[in-house]
């Protein structure tokens, strides 16, 4: 069974995010970019499926600017077999919206016919949490989101989902789209020998036009603001004063 893993290039989670001067979005110029951490978990899970003999080939795909190649190379170095880059923009600040991404992925699925699409539940840049769901709808496939455990047996997959207040276990028929949550696994390091070998793995370059998908944004960002800064605390003179303030002012006890 082929497994398709869509991965997104996003601002590195360690970077202190800065809003652009005109408020149109986050400043991405000369900022460290990495693979979306949830997608990294999806790549790791696909590799584990291959190690168990469930998956036969892992194809990673990324949609965005040409630099997303780096993200794909990382996935190849971790253990994916080949990569597809769909160049959909030349501007690092243009986000490709979930529906356009889902349509492009549907095109890739038609061409590659994987038995499973595994991807992150959402990207940490704009937290849309929509692509996996839209893709399953476009394909008419089953979906399982927020996976924290995954077992594939025959033509179905058992998925434990992290939902509010607990865990839910469901069984879906394959082919399916499964989006993964934080606790599914801990992604491996791309080992140095594998990094060097990844250079020789195929990376196919496509454009959005190859799939006949219009990626023009439908949404307009009106404003981007930084979270409010934390206000300075105060010092209290005694325990009594602290208790009084917690009771009367903060209202927490």
């Amino acid at each position: 069974m082929k497994v398709l893993v869509p991965v997104k290039r996003v601002i590195d989670y360690n970077v202190k995010v800065r809003v652009k001067a005109d408020g149109s979005g986050v400043d991405l110029a000369n900022v460290k970019m990495s693979m979306n951490p949830f997608d990294e978990i999806a790549v790791e899970e696909a590799i584990r499926l291959k190690e168990k003999g469930v998956a036969s080939e892992i194809i990673v795909v990324s949609i965005g600017v040409k630099q997303a190649q780096e993200t794909l190379r990382t996935a190849l170095a971790m253990g994916a077999d080949r990569a597809i880059l769909i160049e959909a923009s030349s501007d690092v600040h243009q986000d490709i919206e979930p529906l356009a991404v889902a349509k492009l992925l549907a095109g890739v699925v038609k061409a590659e016919e994987p038995g499973l699409v595994l991807t992150g539940k959402q990207a940490i840049d704009n937290d849309m949490n929509a692509t996996g769901q839209m893709l399953s709808a476009l394909l008419g496939w089953a979906q399982a989101t927020y996976a924290s455990e995954l077992a594939v047996e025959g033509d179905s997959a058992t998925v434990t989902r992290e939902v509010d207040g607990g865990l839910q276990t469901i069984k879906v028929k394959l082919p399916a789209v499964i989006t993964v949550d934080l606790r599914l696994n801990e992604p491996r390091y791309a080992s140095l020998p594998n990094i060097m070998k990844a250079k020789k793995k195929p990376l196919e370059e496509k454009t959005a036009a190859d799939y006949g998908v219009d990626v023009t944004p439908r949404l307009t960002v009106i404003k981007t603001t930084e979270p409010a800064g934390r206000k300075a605390g105060i010092k209290v003179a005694s325990v009594d004063e602290l208790i009084a303030k917690l009771k009367d002012e903060a209202g927490v006890i």
Binding site: Q69, E70, A77, Y189, S191, I195, A198, K199
Partner: peptide, 14 residues
């Protein structure tokens, strides 16, 4: 190169 960037990243993170 992309490989060199990855080598740096993997090693530093370790």
């Amino acid at each position: 190169t992309d490989e060199q960037k990855m080598i740096i990243e993997t090693t530093r993170s370790f």
